[in-house]
Simulated assay, not measured.
Amino acid sequence: MLIFDGHNDVLTELSRAGGRAAAPGFLTGLPGQMDLPRARKGGFGGGFFALWSRSDGLTDFSALGSEYDVPLPDPVPDAQAWEMIRAQTDTLLALEEFGALRICTSTAQIARARADGVLSAILHLEGAEGIGPDFHELEELYALGLRSLGPVWSRPNVFGHGVPFRYPSGPDIGPGLTERGRELIARCEEMGILVDLSHLNLAGFRDVAEISKRPLVATHSNAHAVVPHARNLTDAQLRIMAESGGLAGLNYESTFVRPDGRPDDDIPPGFLLAQLDHLIDRLGEEGVGLGSDFDGCTPPRWLNTVDNLPALVQAMEQHGYTAARIERICWGNWMRVLAEVWRERH
C-alpha cells in the first residue's frame, strides 16, 4: 500500500543541517523522521514538501501543562523569509537532480513517478511570508513548481492570522484575511494553486471559503470534536469542506490526537482511528487523506518515522476498514482533490 502524504517538513530539517549541501544526506540517511531509504521501506510514495520560514525561540512543548496557550514567535521579515524559502526550494531542486524525487505539477506526473518507483513531490509554501504585494515571488515559485500554499503558519503575517497552539480552544481567534490576503487567495484561485486551510483561524477559513470555487483542503489537520485543540477543525468547518468536495489530511502530532492535548508520544492506534472515523463521518470516504507532519511533529511512538507507515495501514485493517477505503485514504483521495484543484477535471 503506497502512501501519498499531505505534509512533511524535511526541507526545514535539511536547512538546519546546511541546506543544499546537506541534500545528499536525504539519499543515505538523516537523523530526523524521514529520508529516502526509510521512505521506500515504509511505502511512502510522495507528498507535499513544505517550504517554511522557520522561527527560532518556540516554546518547549514537552513542558506544557494540562491547559496551554503557546507564545508565538515574532514575524519573520520578508527579505529574511524569502531568503529561507528560496534556499529550501534550491534544496528540493537538488533532491530532484540527485534522482531522489520528482517535483510534480499534475496527477499524471505523480502517476508516472509512482510507476517509475520515484517519490513525487508537491512544492508547498507554509506561510506566505516573503511574497511581495506584486506577487512576483509567487510567480517565480510557480515557475519552479509551486502548486500548494498556506497563506499563514500559526503566527500572523500581512495576509492573515493563524491559530495558535492553544488547548482547550476553538479556532475562532482573531480577524480574518487582510485585503492583501484576499488578493493572494484570488491569485492562487486564478493560477490553480491549492490553498491550504490548516493553520488559518476560523475567520480566515470563512474568507477562503467565500473566495474559492475549488475544493477546500486542510493538508494536515484533525477533528476538533475529538480533540478540542485550536488547530483542529470544527464540525461546522468540516461541513463547509464537505459541501465543496474538500479533503482533510490526518496529522500525527500528539497534541492534535490525544484527547488531553498533551505532547506525549504514548498514543495508541485508537486515537488516530477515532480521528479518521470522525473525519470520514463528516467528510465522506472520499474526503479524508493522510498529512503526517513528519519532521515537524511529535507522532505516536509506534509511528515515529516514515518507515513505520505500514503499522498505520495495519491498524486501519484491524479496525475493519476495507482495502478500498484504505487505498482511498492512502492515495486515491489525494489524487481526486488535486485533479479538481489543479483544473484537470471540471
Rank of each mutant, 00 (worst) to 15 (best):
I3S: 07
G6V: 05
N8Q: 08
N8Y: 05
L11P: 04
T12H: 04
S15I: 05
S15G: 06
G18L: 15
G19E: 07
L27V: 03
L27N: 09
L30F: 10
P31N: 13
P31C: 12
Q33D: 02
M34Y: 03
R38P: 03
A39L: 09
K41V: 09
L51H: 02
D56M: 05
G57H: 15
T59K: 09
E67K: 04
L72I: 13
D78L: 13
I85L: 14
R86N: 09
L93N: 10
T105G: 14
S106M: 12
T107P: 07
T107C: 12
A108L: 10
L119S: 05
L123I: 08
L123H: 14
H124A: 06
L125I: 07
A128T: 04
G130R: 07
G130E: 03
I131A: 09
D134N: 15
E139L: 15
E140F: 06
L144T: 07
G145W: 05
G150M: 14
R155Y: 06
R155K: 15
V163Q: 11
V163E: 05
P164M: 02
R166N: 00
R166A: 11
P168N: 01
G170T: 14
P171E: 10
E183R: 11
E189K: 02
G192S: 10
D196H: 12
H199V: 14
N201V: 05
L202W: 11
A203G: 11
F205V: 03
V208K: 01
A209T: 07
S212N: 06
R214V: 00
L216W: 01
V217I: 14
S221M: 04
A223P: 05
P228I: 00
Q237I: 12
Q237D: 12
G246K: 09
G249L: 04
Y252N: 01
R262C: 11
G270H: 01
H278M: 04
G284C: 08
E285Y: 01
L290E: 01
S292R: 11
R301C: 06
Y321R: 05
E327K: 07
C330Y: 01
N333G: 04
W334L: 02
V337A: 08
E340M: 02
R345S: 13
